[in-house]
């Protein structure tokens, strides 16, 4: 809980990352040269006013968007990508990285409404494995999903469609899904933004617990100073740069 010194083991090194959007022939710079290091096992809070580019940065780290310039160097344990600039790997590899090394938690939960809670949690594994591989691992994967659902307190709700869950429960399911493939880094874009303070607090506690037990790093975008205080490290974004 206390603000211990970050472990020195790097997983990402972001260098001079910029992003500008083009709107009607005019370029709008949003990120103006971000430098950031992400360490193994830490919770990094990114604070900043609405519109400064927090989501944009997270989308770049999550390889959902293409940076205008700069580098995201991967320093994690996956040998295939170690030392590579994630900005310049091909689309297929980006998909693999998103699936195996990253997890996403969004403000609006983003569960698939046609699948049950458990099926939603299993999605990363469905995408990871081929049909036959998935079937052969079926039992252990379902066990894992049930275990994760128990950890987030949704055992009773695993056969429910997401539409029948409360906001807090949905976010718990989304967190379980983000952690399913044991990612090294979980990207959370205002995960408590749609929740009341009390529920938000609980979600935050859950993330802290999971951070400790799984050892995954979390990047937490928030504008709640209170929650950010409890992260291992905070950075403030002002006008496309870290203050």
């Amino acid at each position: 809980m206390n603000n211990t010194e970050a472990k020195p083991e790097l997983i990402l090194e972001i260098k001079q990352l910029t992003k500008e959007y083009r709107l009607n022939q005019q370029s709008v710079p949003v990120l103006k040269g971000i430098d950031l290091k992400v360490y193994r096992g830490e919770i990094l809070a990114i604070l900043g006013q609405s519109g400064v580019g927090k989501s944009t940065l997270l989308n770049l780290i999550g390889l959902l968007d293409q940076a205008s310039s700069g580098h995201i160097i991967y320093k994690g344990t996956n040998d295939r990508f170690h030392g590579k600039d994630l900005c310049s790997v091909n689309l297929k590899e980006k998909a693999v990285i998103r699936n195996e090394l990253l997890g996403f938690v969004f403000q609006a939960y983003h569960l698939l409404p046609d699948l049950t809670v458990r099926e939603n949690v299993l999605l990363p594994a469905m995408i990871r494995y081929s049909g036959s591989e998935f079937r052969s691992r079926n039992k252990s994967l379902i066990e894992k999903a049930d275990h994760l659902l128990e950890r987030v307190g949704l055992s009773e709700r695993r056969e429910f469609p997401p539409t029948r869950l409360s906001g807090g429960e949905r976010q718990r399911a989304a967190i379980a899904r983000a952690l399913f493939n044991d990612p090294e880094l979980v990207l959370c874009d205002e995960p408590t933004g749609n929740l009341d303070t009390q529920t938000g607090e609980k979600i935050h506690q859950l993330m802290q617990e999971l951070n400790e037990t799984t050892g995954a790093s979390f990047i937490l975008v928030t504008h709640d100073e209170n929650l950010a205080q409890r992260a291992h490290r905070q950075v403030h974004m002002v006008d496309g740069l870290f203050a």
Binding site: L64, A95, R98, N99, L123, R177
Partner: peptide, 16 residues
Amino acid sequence: TRDAGILMSLGARPRD
């Protein structure tokens, strides 16, 4: 459409 975006964030490729 949103599902497609979510699936891509989870590692689905456009061809999927």
